[in-house]
């Protein structure tokens, strides 16, 4: 119980703390990063760079491990196909990201900081996910549909 639930709890807490520390809980900062033709705020690039740096190291351990520390096996995305869905989905995602200055991580992380805005954004996000499920139900059930 503790063995399986402590890693996601610690991971989620670290993730939320990192977002807040890096200023990613303020939509103005995210929109400032995307505003390259205006008053550009490069902070998000440092956040992304720091996270990618640690993860690039972490990935190198994976091939040398028979199994994860607290789980029987690795369950990692293995798709390599570039599809219209990938590009179309990322485009819609980017438009929403730019409009609000929020993506799923920060949206849920601010639930205790700005409850009203967070609930409106998160509820809409879940509604959007549900719309996808209703429209693409068969695909949602296929095992190949694993998310990154």
């Amino acid at each position: 119980m503790i063995r399986t639930h402590l890693p996601p709890l610690v991971s989620g807490t670290l993730f939320g703390a990192g977002l807040a520390l890096g200023g990613m809980t303020d939509p103005a900062r995210i929109r400032g990063f995307l505003d390259i033709f205006g008053a550009w705020d490069p902070t998000l690039a440092f956040v992304m760079g720091g996270a990618v740096l640690v993860m690039a190291i972490a990935w190198r351990f994976v091939p040398r491990m028979a199994h994860p520390l607290f789980a029987p096996k690795f369950s990692l995305p293995d798709r390599t196909d570039l599809t219209p869905q990938l590009v179309g989905g990322a485009t819609l995602f980017g438009v929403g990201w730019g409009l609000a200055g929020l993506c799923p991580g920060p949206g849920f992380a601010i639930l205790a900081i700005a409850p009203l805005e967070a609930v409106v954004f998160c509820a809409s996000l879940l509604a959007g996910m549900l719309m996808h499920r209703v429209l693409f139900d068969q695909k949602a059930k296929a095992p190949a549909h694993a998310s990154q």
Partner: peptide, 20 residues
């Protein structure tokens, strides 16, 4: 930003190496 990013990286690394 960098400090926050390192924490996010640690969070993701824990999920990767801990939970796979």
């Amino acid at each position: 930003g960098l400090a926050g990013g390192l924490l996010i990286g640690l969070a993701a690394a824990l999920m990767l190496l801990g939970a796979g």
